[in-house]
Design a protein around this nucleic acid. Structure first.
Lengths: 138, 138
DNA sequence: GTAACTGCAAAATATTTGCATCCTT
DNA sequence: AAGGATGCAAATATTTTGCAGTTAC
């Protein structure tokens, strides 16, 4: 049984509203990551720009989504895995950005190697962003 | 012998101008990475906002600096190593972002492990961003 | 002297905030 | 009914573009 947008909102103690459901469903349907602009385009004026900003921020706060660092400063968001709790992410997965189609996908099955940091450094989170050509654009 | 801002500009066939020298020197003096805002603050109105944008873009194009992906979408820039040529970066180094002091540093001595990508994916660049507490903030 | 770079002004974008209204619980 | 969420308007902030004046080579 797949988890529904409804479930996710309940788990995070958020009111179940139409825009949250729609945005969450978009994330659930999309295999890759989404930028603010993608969401806006997808719903073309269906609801307010500002609502998208606020909804994304709320989801971030609750740990429902996480942001993916990108080199071109477009902000990408993706659903968190089950082991993410509010404010404390365990997402150690690899993100792949295709230079051809521009899509960002989570490579869930690729394991992020642990790196040995210099003395005195403590790591709480590791992101690995690989860019290149994805299998669809090959 | 240390390389100078002057040398770098000559190597990239760029005119040697005051603002380019100053910005490059700032990079050379700074061990960590710089965001657009940092540069602006550092020179407090010394020269135009727009000049900074254009200078950074030029440096990016020439492969003098590279941008570092960050999770909070502030765009960070850092000097490229010698083995970077225009448009083709070999920077496989790890960046560390301190959650305490906010500084971004390049961990040049930490080797980025190669990851095995799923069939069909080709990688041209790998970024690894580790966040946590740096040795100075410990 | 010519091409390239800079500063200023302004346009285009992107993000944040305040407040009245509407929806969820 | 009460608290929270949304939409609209507007304030801020960020980035881009055009053009005239200046500087590097």
């Amino acid at each position: 049984m797949n988890i529904t947008a409804d479930d996710i909102l309940k788990q995070s103690h958020l009111s179940i509203t139409s825009s949250r459901i729609k945005i969450l469903n978009l994330f659930l349907e999309t295999k890759g990551a989404l930028a603010h602009g993608d969401i806006e385009k997808k719903f073309g004026g269906k609801f307010d720009r500002v609502t998208i900003y606020r909804t994304l921020q709320t989801f971030l706060d609750k740990g429902i989504i996480h942001s993916i660092p990108t080199a071109d400063n477009s902000v990408q968001y993706a659903l968190c895995k089950d082991d993410c709790t509010a404010g404390h992410h365990h997402d150690q997965h690899v993100h792949f950005i295709c230079n051809q189609c521009g899509n960002t996908v989570c490579l869930d099955d690729v394991h992020v190697p642990t790196v040995k940091l210099p003395i005195g450094f403590t790591s709480t989170q590791v992101h690995m962003i690989v860019s290149g050509i994805c299998k669809d654009c090959k």
